[in-house]
Simulated assay, not measured.
Amino acid sequence: MFPWIHAAVGYLFLVLVAVLLGRRLTRAELLAVIVGTQLPDFVDKPLAWWFSILPSGRSLAHSLVVAVPLSVVVLAVAWYRSHPGVGLAFGFGYASHLLGDSYVAFYYWRPEEFTFLLWPLLPAYPYDDFVGFTDFFSRLTVTSELLVAFLATVAVGVIFLVQFARAPWYAPR
C-alpha cells in the first residue's frame, strides 16, 4: 500500500469509530493516527532499501514483536499525560497499517506472506525486490486502479484538512 492510502484508511477507520461512539476527535488524535499509519514504513523502508540493514521493507517495525510493545508504551505515556485517546489513535493507526499490508494475503489466503508479522522469529517475506525509492517509483505503472485510489485519497485528505481546521466533530484542546 502507498503511504497516502495507509493514512487514508487509518484516518477513515478512526473517524468511523469516533462517529459510532459519538466521540469528538482532537487534533492530537488526528495527528497520532497519521503517525501510527506511517511509522512502520518510515522505519523499515529506509533501513532495508537504502542501508540494507533489514532483510525487507516489511520486517522490524512491521512485526508484532515491535508493534504491540511500542503501542502499549505510547498508550501508557498518553494515559499518564491524561490523553489516552492519543495513544489509542496511534495504536489504531499502527494496526491499520499492518492490516493494510496483510489484506491481499488474507484475501487470497497465502499464509507464507504473514511471516513479516513475527519477524525476527520468522523470516521476513521477500516481497520487495528493488533497492530504493527511486527504483520503486521508476517501476510504478499508472493504472485505473491507481488513479481511483489516488483520487479517493485526495478526497480523504481534503476531509482530513477540513476536520483538522474545525469540522463539526472536532473538539479543540
Rank of each mutant, 00 (worst) to 15 (best):
T115Q: 14
Y125K: 02
T141P: 00
D135R: 07
T141Y: 02
P120N: 09
Y125A: 05
D101S: 11
L118R: 01
L140K: 00
V142I: 13
L99I: 13
V156E: 14
E112Q: 12
L140Y: 02
Y103Q: 14
L121R: 03
D135G: 15
L117E: 15
D128F: 04
P123M: 13
T141W: 02
L151G: 06
S138W: 02
L140I: 00
G100W: 12
V104N: 14
W119Q: 07
F136V: 01
L99Y: 09
R110Y: 01
D101G: 12
S138D: 05
S138I: 03
V154A: 04
F133W: 15
R110T: 03
T115S: 15
S102A: 15
P111M: 10
D128E: 08
F136G: 04
F130N: 04
T143E: 10
F130I: 00
S102H: 15
P126Y: 09
E113F: 06
V131G: 14
F114V: 15
W119R: 05
F106N: 10
L147M: 13
G157P: 08
L140G: 00
E112A: 11
E112C: 07
S144G: 04
G100Y: 14
D128C: 01
P111V: 10
P120R: 05
F130P: 02
V154W: 00
Y108K: 14
V158T: 14
F136Q: 10
P120C: 05
T141F: 01
R139A: 13
V156G: 04
E145D: 07
G132W: 10
T134P: 00
A105V: 12
T115W: 12
D128A: 02
F136E: 11
F116R: 11
F137M: 10
T143Y: 07
L146C: 10
D135E: 15
Y107N: 07
E113A: 09
F137H: 08
F106K: 12
Y125R: 02
A124F: 07
T141A: 01
V104E: 15
L121I: 09
Y107H: 07
V142R: 03
T134M: 02
S138P: 00
T115H: 11
E145G: 02
D135H: 11
V156P: 13
F137G: 06
T153D: 13
L121V: 06
E113R: 05
D128I: 01
V158N: 08
L140S: 01
E145N: 10
D101L: 11
Y103N: 13
V156Q: 06
V131D: 11
L147S: 02
A155C: 04
T115F: 12
V156C: 05
F136I: 03
Y127S: 04
S96T: 13
T143C: 10
Y103F: 15
P126F: 14
F133T: 14
F114H: 12
Y107Q: 11
F137W: 13
L121F: 04
F133V: 08
H97D: 00
F136Y: 07
F130G: 08
E113L: 06
E145W: 04
P111N: 15
F106L: 12
L98R: 13
L151S: 05
L151Q: 02
T115C: 13
T134C: 03
F114A: 12
A149Q: 05
F136N: 03
T153E: 15
D135A: 14
S102G: 10
A152L: 13
F136L: 08
F114C: 14
V154L: 05
V148D: 02
F137I: 09
E145T: 03
L147N: 01
L140T: 00
R110D: 02
F150K: 00
Y103K: 06
Y125C: 05
